[in-house]
């Protein structure tokens, strides 16, 4: 009887964790993903060795694939923590590159 109660509580905790996993991953796959994809697109547009309009277009055309693959990665990755750390790290790195590039060369 007592064992059943404990395992019941355990399964409740497991379910609760699972729900949170899904919520956190969903946030990462939408909001976080959009931020990271935008930064990737921005950096591509700055750094691709084409004319500015061509580089912007190339970045815009390819960003949807980037977004889709990142979303799949978010749900496939082993742990939520890993997803968040990697996403934040890459966003910070790309943000710095973009900021430096904008500071150095400005926009049209």
């Amino acid at each position: 009887m007592a064992r059943a109660a404990v395992s019941g509580r355990q399964s409740a905790i497991v379910r609760w964790l699972a729900v949170w996993q899904v919520i956190l991953r969903t946030i990462a796959a939408t909001g976080g993903n959009y931020l990271l994809t935008s930064l990737i697109a921005g950096v591509m547009a700055r750094l691709l060795p084409f004319a500015p309009s061509e580089a912007s277009m190339t970045a815009t055309l390819s960003c949807f694939l980037v977004f889709a693959l990142l979303a799949m990665w978010v749900f496939a990755a082993r742990s939520v923590l890993r997803v968040y750390v990697l996403m934040a790290g890459w966003s910070a790195l790309l943000g710095v590159i973009l900021w430096l590039s904008l500071r150095a060369w400005g926009r049209l």
Binding site: V43, A45, P52, S53, S56, A59, T60, L98, R107, L108
Partner: peptide, 28 residues
């Protein structure tokens, strides 16, 4: 289909190069 409205969904690649998106469209 996503590409048809791409500049609405992902304007940042243009914003990274152009202060005013009008300049970009004028170039294209």
């Amino acid at each position: 289909g996503l590409v048809t409205l791409a500049t609405l969904y992902m304007p940042w690649a243009i914003a990274a190069n152009y202060a005013d998106s009008g300049t970009y469209f004028e170039a294209l």
